[in-house]
C-alpha cells in the first residue's frame, strides 16, 4: 500500500507537471538495413562514430535533424519517433552517398538502403598463430580514391572497430590497391600483455578506410579468439 501511495503521488505530480505541455508520446518506429547492392549482404558498420541516418521531420522550421546510429552489423532501428513525414538520408557513411528520400513514418516503418560500399574486404581470415594473431585479406575498392589505411582492431566487446578498440595494428596505404594483393596484419600478443590478458577472449575485426572526406571504415564481421 505504501508503494502504491508513492506511485499515486508521483503520478499526480507528473500529471500536474505536464498539464501545459501534454504532448503525445513517440508512436512510430523506423528500422532497416544497409545492404550491399552487389552481394546482397549487410554492410558492416561502427556503432560509435559510424554511419548516421539523418532524419529531418517535416512541418517544423527551423528544425534540428536527428541522427540515428547504425549497429555494427549494418542494421538500425529507432522506436522513439513521432508519426510524420521525414526526409531521410544516410550520412558520413562507408559507402557511396545515396540520395535523400521523403518517407512517411508511422507504426513500424521499414526502410532499407541499397548501397555500394567504398571497399569490400575479401578472403578475410583471422587466426592465432603461436604468440601472434594474424589477419590476411584482399581489398576490392569501388571508387578510384586511395585506400588510406587498413587495420586489425581488438576489443573485448563484439562491437569492436577503429573507434572502439584496446589494441590496433594499422598500415598506412595511401594508394590505389591491387585487387590481387594479399594484406597481412599481425597483433603480437606478448608486447600487448597489459591490455590483452592471456587466457581471455577478444574480438578481432579487419577494417579498411578509403580516402574520402568523412568516410568511415569498411569491415568484415569480428572474429572471437582466445589469446
Amino acid at each position: 500500500m505504501k508503494t502504491y501511495k508513492i506511485v499515486m503521488i508521483l503520478l499526480s505530480f507528473a500529471l500536474y507537471a505536464c498539464e501545459l505541455d501534454n504532448f503525445d508520446m513517440p508512436d512510430a518506429a523506423l528500422s532497416g538495413r544497409i545492404i550491399d547492392a552487389q552481394t546482397g549482404e549487410l554492410v558492416e558498420q561502427d556503432i560509435i562514430r559510424g554511419t548516421n541516418i539523418e532524419l529531418t521531420e517535416h512541418g517544423y522550421d527551423p528544425v534540428a535533424s536527428q541522427y540515428l546510429i547504425v549497429k555494427n552489423d549494418g542494421t538500425y532501428e529507432n522506436s522513439l519517433l513521432f508519426s510524420n513525414t521525414y526526409t531521410v538520408q544516410p550520412v558520413r557513411g562507408n559507402f557511396i552517398p545515396v540520395e535523400s528520400q521523403e518517407i512517411n513514418i508511422s507504426g513500424n516503418t521499414v526502410l532499407d538502403f541499397t548501397v555500394t560500399p567504398y571497399i569490400r574486404i575479401l578472403d578475410a581470415s583471422v587466426v592465432k598463430e603461436g604468440s601472434k594473431v594474424v589477419a590476411t585479406f584482399r581489398l576490392e575498392q569501388n571508387v578510384t580514391n586511395n585506400v588510406r589505411k587498413v587495420g586489425l582492431y581488438v576489443h573485448s566487446e563484439a562491437s569492436v572497430g577503429e573507434p572502439l578498440r584496446i589494441v590496433a595494428v594499422e598500415n598506412e596505404i595511401n594508394a590505389v590497391v591491387d585487387p590481387n594483393q594479399v594484406f597481412t596484419l599481425e597483433v603480437d600478443l606478448p608486447s600487448n600483455s597489459a591490455t590483452l590478458q592471456a587466457g581471455e577472449q577478444y574480438f578481432f575485426r579487419i577494417g579498411a578506410l578509403i580516402d574520402v572526406g568523412e568516410a568511415k571504415l569498411n569491415y568484415v564481421p569480428a572474429v572471437r579468439l582466445g589469446v
Binding site: 547492392a37 552517398p97 545515396v98 569501388n142 571508387v143 578510384t144 580514391n145 586511395n146 574520402v212
Partner: peptide, 15 residues
C-alpha cells in the same frame, strides 16, 4: 587537394 570528393561521385553517378 579536394579532388577526393570526386571518386564516390563518379562511381555513384555511373552506377
Amino acid at each position: 587537394e579536394r579532388y577526393d570528393i570526386a571518386g564516390p561521385v563518379l562511381a555513384g553517378d555511373i552506377q
